[in-house]
Design a protein around this nucleic acid. Structure first.
Lengths: 342, 342
DNA sequence: CAATCGCTTGGTAGCGCTGTCAATATCGGT
DNA sequence: ACCGATATTGACAGCGCTACCAAGCGATTG
């Protein structure tokens, strides 16, 4: 016959309750909603819990309440600096809260994303943070039926699943090109790697700005599906020079490419600025201290992560943000590498 | 009186069992140890589960089995590229396995680390990956009593708690200095930021190498507790030059500092190499494509993460690695920035 | 002074799964 | 054909916590 499973000196909620002289359910309430207790019992439970070193069993709680306190986060890359900033913001926002993070890496695949989404939602997460607005139709359908706050991060779009925080990659790229045009550059090349949806929208922004100025020329555009790197920046820049030797500026979809392009210029003894202007994207820390300093488009990645997590928590606590869509904007950081054309 | 909690059309293990014509416990075994079933029942349960779209309830499993399938990971920083490589390795190793990751950021504080450790262990993780060998005495004591595989990563030390994978920061720094000495450099400066235990050991390695060559001079050493950055590399390098204008080389405890130093040299029109040699640490991707290419010490970060996770899983599956301590080594990547002194 | 109301508190019965042991089926060897 | 060993399967009783409902109680109201 089944025997009592011996449970050694483990401290359960029941022990705390006994110690405090209240019922288990009252002790339980203390941990979930202390305000509901009278001051006296609250203090008694609190000190009993501390004295016994009680730690709630999350699995039991999740099973009984049919909820978890886990926020799922789906990002496309763990390597990309951009996402590590976002993640840092998310972790910081959740620090000290009752919620924890379950992180998964979609590797830029929306099919992988859908798989992970199913995996997550099966465990009834408290909330979800997902990258971008390009999900599979099935993913979207699943998310729309799920009853938990969802924040799409990194970019904005017309139809948020729930909440959304980001900025317009199209506008940001267009503004970068606008800056180069204002500085007197005309033959502005485009360097793109990975070409995920957000990069694609930067290309669209570039195209729009160039077309507006009647300067668009397919020869100016070099893209690849290869993941980005500094080395790749040098390679692509060389390709671009081969296609369009007369360029006077280059817009790179991220700062790694821009740094690679800068090094390639140095290798070729091309003056930056002077013979070549360079503008990157994201404004990673090193852009301000390179030689020459590199212009870039600053994006608020840490804030994006932090706010996204805060939006989830606020919703969970019944204080739903007034505006479900937040535009964090961007700013074009004008530095030496795109100084006015002489 | 308490009422039956209505459970809508949710698919439980019992449903799968009924559908397959077996007992619930047999169905349960299918998901945990399929080999224990006869081929016929195995197939029946499998198709029943698939047909019903059954997804196990992890909370119930954790509660009943008193175990989880979560591996806790404690790292000091989310921003540092070094850790994002390690993390990528860990996530890759666990991809497709039953295990998932719970990540926490100690922010280089061993007190924070201890707090997080208690938090983790209270939930009975399947395993634990923790950074470095400098834990508080309490942390160590807790970990030694816990019954789950633990891997210390990033460095090696004399008394592993359980398993360990890393390399000798002391030897790596010493080898880097050995390389510079072999190239004919004598006044070799040291640039250090953050000064966490591993950076400290690199400083020790530098000191040992310089002392062996009778070249040690406190004026050559510049360190700060400030977190590392490219900008900081430039600043520290300027400080070093002020203290010891006659240096002919500089060893930087990481590649960001090295890049910052390189830019500062360019700003001052100092030839690299020629007037100044530079060696970094970690061999991030950009070191091989900068202008000039930068020498560095390659460390196997991705492999470290991947192997650490693999070691945990193997232990959990009863195939404990033969050697609990793995030295992944390092290699000095000799590039243009430390070309032989002319 | 009785009726009502809101705030606390407690009792009961699961949440969905698995550990333990027992029972049964299968199989090779003598 | 019999015996013990091994491979499969099943029954039962929780794992530790919380949802739900009800009851207790002092305060408020007419």
């Amino acid at each position: 016959m089944a025997r009592k499973r011996i449970t050694p000196g483990k401290i359960r909620l029941a022990e705390v309750a006994k110690h405090a002289g209240v019922s288990p359910i009252t002790a339980s309430r203390f941990f979930r909603n202390p305000e509901a207790l009278s001051a006296g019992k609250r203090a008694r439970v609190e000190s009993a819990a501390k004295e016994l070193g009680y730690v709630p069993n999350l699995a039991a709680r999740a099973l009984a309440s049919q909820r978890t306190e886990v926020i799922g986060v789906l990002i496309p890359s763990l390597t990309n600096n951009v996402f590590s900033d976002v993640l840092r913001g998310i972790y910081d926002a959740l620090d000290g809260s009752r919620y924890s993070i379950q992180l998964a890496n979609t590797r830029y695949s929306i099919l992988q994303e859908e798989r992970l989404l199913r995996l997550f939602l099966a465990q009834k997460p408290a909330g979800l943070i997902i990258t971008g607005i390009n999900q599979t139709p099935d993913s979207r359908a699943i998310m729309e039926t799920v009853d938990c706050p969802i924040v799409q991060i990194m970019e904005l779009g017309p139809s948020p699943i729930d909440m959304m925080i980001g900025f317009s990659h199209f506008d940001a790229a267009k503004a970068a090109i606008g800056h180069l045009l204002a500085q007197g550059y005309r033959r502005i090349g485009f360097l793109g790697a990975r070409m995920d949806p957000r990069v694609q929208r930067r290309l669209d922004g570039y195209r729009a700005a160039m077309a507006d100025a009647a300067l668009l020329d397919p020869q100016l555009i070099v893209t690849t599906a290869i993941p980005t790197s500094v080395t790749l920046g040098g390679t692509l820049f060389a390709d671009l020079l081969a296609k369009a030797p007369d360029i006077d500026a280059v817009f790179c979809v991220n700062d790694d490419l821009a740094l690679g392009a800068l090094f390639e210029c140095k290798r070729r003894h091309m003056a930056v600025p002077g013979q070549m202007a360079i503008v990157g994207f994201n404004d990673l820390e090193f852009m301000a201290s390179s030689e020459p300093t590199l212009s870039s488009v600053r994006t608020n990645r840490y804030e994006m992560g932090r706010n996204a997590a805060a939006m989830v928590i606020e919703t969970l606590e019944g204080r739903r943000p007034t505006d479900p869509v937040v535009d964090l904007g961007f700013s074009v950081m004008e530095r030496q590498s795109s100084a006015r054309r002489s």
